[in-house]
């Protein structure tokens, strides 16, 4: 499984990764829009650099969760978690319900709000390039090696190594964090700041919240059916008996 590791301490905020992404996907220039969030991500910017105090630069992009909430939420399977790691999107299936945007705990997917035929937009980890054996455009463009590409296990090991070297560092994206993500961070600042104050470390994967309810659906369905039929049968039977009794009384009388 492929993965990206971003080391916040190494990022100088040069925006080369953002530019590379825009160039690769031929994204049009950004215009200020009412529906933008302040983090710089939008339908035309699939990754962005968020500048935090003390000149800390955090690259924001889709985390490509191991158990993605968006994939489990999508009612038509337009979002898919690939074996290589990326969560990709098929606009031909999408019907535009935006449930994925609601479900994503990182609030990553963005929408073509100004289009009459809008699609979901987010980082797809350069799926096509990965398949060709290349690395994603952003990691390729990074001049300082702040964001690197590789096998997830290796990167995880590398991250852990860096943390051992520098105990101030924190690791984001291991299996602790909603089942693990393919985009890992090593950071000396708290990433809460770019995720709306949410710290997801220590939380379970999100699909597990709906899974038990959905699993009980067939049972409920059949159960209600049986219950209702039973109720009907019982009540009907009771009424029939009552009627028979009445007619019997009449006959007797």
């Amino acid at each position: 499984m492929k993965s990206i590791l971003t080391d916040i301490t190494k990022c100088i905020g040069c925006n080369e990764c953002v530019l590379a992404c825009k160039r690769t996907y031929d994204l049009p220039p950004e215009l200020p829009r009412r529906w933008h969030k302040p983090d710089g991500l939008s339908a035309r910017n699939w990754t962005s650099i968020v500048r935090l105090p003390e000149n800390k630069f955090v690259r924001k992009q889709c985390r490509h969760c191991q158990e993605p909430a968006c994939v489990s939420a999508c009612p038509v399977g337009a979002l898919i978690k690939n074996a290589e790691g990326p969560v990709t999107y098929d606009g031909g299936k999408c019907m535009g319900c935006r449930y994925c945007m609601m479900a994503c705990p990182y609030e990553i997917p963005r929408y073509d709000w100004d289009s009459a035929a809008p699609y979901i937009r987010k980082c797809i980890l350069c799926y096509e390039r990965i398949k060709e054996g290349k690395q994603p455009a952003c990691t390729e463009a990074c001049p300082t090696g702040a964001t690197i590409f590789g096998e997830r296990e290796e990167l995880l090991a590398e991250a852990k190594r860096r943390r051992q070297e520098n105990p101030k560092l924190q690791l984001y994206g291991d299996e602790n964090e909603i089942g693990g993500t393919c985009v890992l961070y090593v950071s000396d600042v708290d990433l809460k700041a770019i995720y709306n104050g949410r710290d997801l470390r220590g939380d379970p994967a999100l699909p597990s919240t709906t899974a038990p309810v959905l699993a009980s659906v067939p049972l409920t369905f059949v159960g209600v059916g049986v219950l209702m039929s039973g109720l009907y049968w019982t009540i009907n039977r009771r009424e029939q008996l009552k009627k028979e009794g009445e007619s019997g009384e009449k006959a007797n009388g």
Binding site: A73, C74, P75, V76, G77, A78, M95, C97, P207, T210
Partner: peptide, 13 residues
């Protein structure tokens, strides 16, 4: 689309 593209993990489905 939900009639042909099935994704039974989704509550919305």
């Amino acid at each position: 689309h939900p009639t042909i593209y099935w994704q039974h993990h989704s509550a919305l489905f």
